[in-house]
Design a protein around this nucleic acid. Structure first.
Lengths: 229, 229
DNA sequence: GCATATTTGTCCGTATGTATA
DNA sequence: CTATACATACGGACAAATATG
């Protein structure tokens, strides 16, 4: 027992799970809790507590856990339970290497007539959010920017793997707080990449992105290591 | 009732699942059956039949199904059951696009001192298998070659996504049989890519690979479309 | 180090809803 | 349209592993 506060909050979500696959809906609820940082890395997810909080059986809940474990948002330790993933510095390094490979590769092979609307929209959203001081929205717009870049490949699989990678990275973003100082510097870079793409300089866009991802990684790992995770 | 032949064969595997996670082991058994082509695309996997054949409960089996569905080897149709994935021509196109992006990108960013041992081993295995007329082994060696190329990134995530992509592609390979005519032409290309890497010409290696992947895709989709899947 | 309590892993029976012959 | 087969989801049970005192 001794359900912590966030477990009790879950009861408010019970109304939301009345159609489609129960396990899938449970997974979605937990996924948003995790990516929004309300379930910090290392948190243990008790089958019993969450089951009663959401009003689903243990079997169903376990299916939801499997789904999230495959997305690497949870880790399943045999006979011990499931925990919100705690990323190591090596994980962060790997995620950025993956991003440089994929995002850079996508930009480099983008054709001149590729539809840049989503990319442009994400850049503008970020700029207007920054102008209004809505730093959390700046972060979301930044995520959307990179998702839109990946989407330029026109490949469902590329899009999906990017979605997973970005979701994983949120586990780190939320730990270090300070969304402003982390996301703000990259607004101008995003704009610059968009401009380069519109002028047809795909190689320049790719290089700019790869360089800035490397810088972001360094900034992130430094701050992350300082927290002692 | 009316368990088809392959379901009955499963009973022989029951001894294999006595340790570690039951669901994981069930998944592994089914995975090998699928990638080896013994469970052709479109096959329906009945919870009841397979459950009794392997001697596991439906709950456990469903967990195994989730694992394989996430690897895209099975598709889960809500309220209808799980089926061995049937790839469309669009899927094949997407898989090759992904491969060109990732494998090409990896080669292009390979450093001069990267360890090429695994790549070389795969090339040699393929050549000796071809010399001995073991065409199935030629196919496996070819898979290993591409897996080794992906491993040059030194990234667990890149390796894993490549593993999944190659497993998916096997669903198509097995449908069109004729392993010799499909894999043989690429032995020389693999050797050439290795040579280019050893001489430090990473751009040349990447270009060769990308071109040959495009050719392989065309050959595959043509033969695949002819089967009417 | 030991005994106990808790939690997970696995299985079973069953009720309900959904798809298909 | 009805009947049948099957998937979904629940709840209970017990052994085994783990955590706790």
């Amino acid at each position: 027992m001794a359900s912590s506060a966030w477990v009790e909050e879950l009861s408010g979500e019970r109304a939301a799970l009345t159609r489609a696959s129960t396990a899938g809906r449970v997974a979605e609820i937990l996924r948003s809790r995790i990516t929004e940082g309300r379930l910090p890395p290392g948190t243990r997810l008790s089958e019993e507590d969450i089951g009663v909080a959401l009003g689903v059986s243990r079997n169903t809940l376990r299916e939801a856990f499997r789904l999230l474990a495959h997305e690497r948002l949870l880790v399943h330790e045999f006979n011990r339970g499931v925990f919100v993933r705690r990323l190591t510095v090596d994980d962060v390094h790997d995620l950025y290497r993956f991003r440089r490979l994929v995002e850079g590769g996508v930009l480099r092979t983008t054709s001149a007539d590729a539809p840049l609307d989503d990319v442009r929209r994400a850049v503008e959203e970020g700029e207007s959010a920054a102008a209004g001081g809505r730093w959390v929205d700046v972060g979301t717009a930044n995520m959307r920017f990179h998702q839109a870049v990946a989407a330029l490949a026109g490949s469902p699989r590329v899009e999906e793997s990017m979605r997973h990678v970005l979701a994983e990275l949120r586990l780190v973003f939320h730990v270090m707080a300070a969304p402003r100082t982390f996301h703000e510097p990259y607004l101008a870079e995003n704009r610059r990449i968009l401009d380069l793409l519109e002028s047809g300089d795909v190689a320049g866009a790719a290089e700019t992105l790869e360089r800035y991802l490397t810088a972001a990684e360094a900034q992130l790992t430094e701050a992350y290591a300082a927290t002692g995770c």
